[in-house]
């Protein structure tokens, strides 16, 4: 299993070296938009981009950077994506990179049935291509809303932790004040029957404040790596 890198180290390092006003130069160094146009062929079955782009299976992707997730008017988003947007998820380099890598790990119930792009360079190239079609690419990536503050990555050993389901059951009692054990979801998403890996990545994303939501960030903040693994192990046992 490869590490679930929420934000590629190469990206964080390169951004750390540049200062304001060097976006254009950095844009070239960050990813190759021409190569990204090739990568975009995977997306083009569902998404249009460029002049005259319309919503089709998925929303059009013009002006994507800096846009609140699930907020493009006229497109009928999944409840999950709309909720993440309302909670404050904004598309920037960091969040798009995480979404494109494993869509379900960032937005659990997304309808985007795309397995993700494993290769960091391909993602960089695609992001470089996509940002050509945003209104003010000059402020990307080092200024808000696309500024990067921390490097977030999950090492293999964290993903490999085997959780203690009995401890997980006790910890899960905190979750079950809001989330329902039978998996029904009304205003609050279901957290049962998740693949363990996705559950672990999602909880780490809350702990690192990459996923928005004040309650979940608070809950995740005091969970250790072992406790997150224990919760994932317990919730996997619910069928």
């Amino acid at each position: 299993m490869r590490p679930a890198v929420l934000l590629a180290p190469v990206l964080a390092v390169s951004l750390g070296l540049i200062g304001p006003g060097r976006a254009a130069a950095e844009a070239v160094a960050f990813g190759d938009a021409e190569a990204g146009a090739e990568v975009f062929l995977w997306c083009s079955g569902c998404h249009e981009i460029g002049p005259d782009a319309q919503d089709s299976v998925g929303p059009h992707l013009n002006g994507l950077f800096g846009r609140r997730a699930g907020a493009h008017e006229g497109y009928d988003y999944s409840e999950s994506l709309a909720r993440m947007g309302a909670d404050g998820l904004v598309w920037d380099l960091e969040t798009l990179d995480a979404y494109i890598e494993v869509p379900q790990s960032l937005v659990s119930g997304t309808r985007m049935s795309f397995p993700g792009i494993e290769d960091q360079q391909e993602r960089n190239d695609l992001l470089a291509f996509l940002r050509r079609y945003s209104d003010s690419p000059a402020n990307i990536p080092e200024a808000p809303p696309t500024a990067l503050h921390v490097e977030v990555a999950l090492p293999e050993e964290v993903l490999a932790l085997v959780g203690d389901p009995e401890y997980g059951e006790y910890l899960a009692s905190e979750c079950l004040t809001c989330h329902q054990k039978d998996g029904s979801a009304q205003g609050i998403p279901s957290i049962t029957k998740w693949p363990e890996r996705n559950f672990v990545v999602a909880m780490h994303a809350y702990r690192q404040q990459l996923r928005p939501h004040p309650v979940m960030q608070m809950v995740a903040a005091r969970l250790s790596d072992e406790e997150i693994a224990a919760l994932a192990a317990y919730f996997k046992t619910l069928d």
């Binding site: 079950l176 004040t177 809001c178 054990k181 029904s184 979801a185 009304q186 205003g187 609050i188």
Partner: peptide, 14 residues
């Protein structure tokens, strides 16, 4: 608000 409705359903089930 919708979250609060979900919480009510969750805590009463709990």
């Amino acid at each position: 608000y919708e979250e609060s409705l979900g919480w009510y359903a969750g805590i009463t089930a709990d």
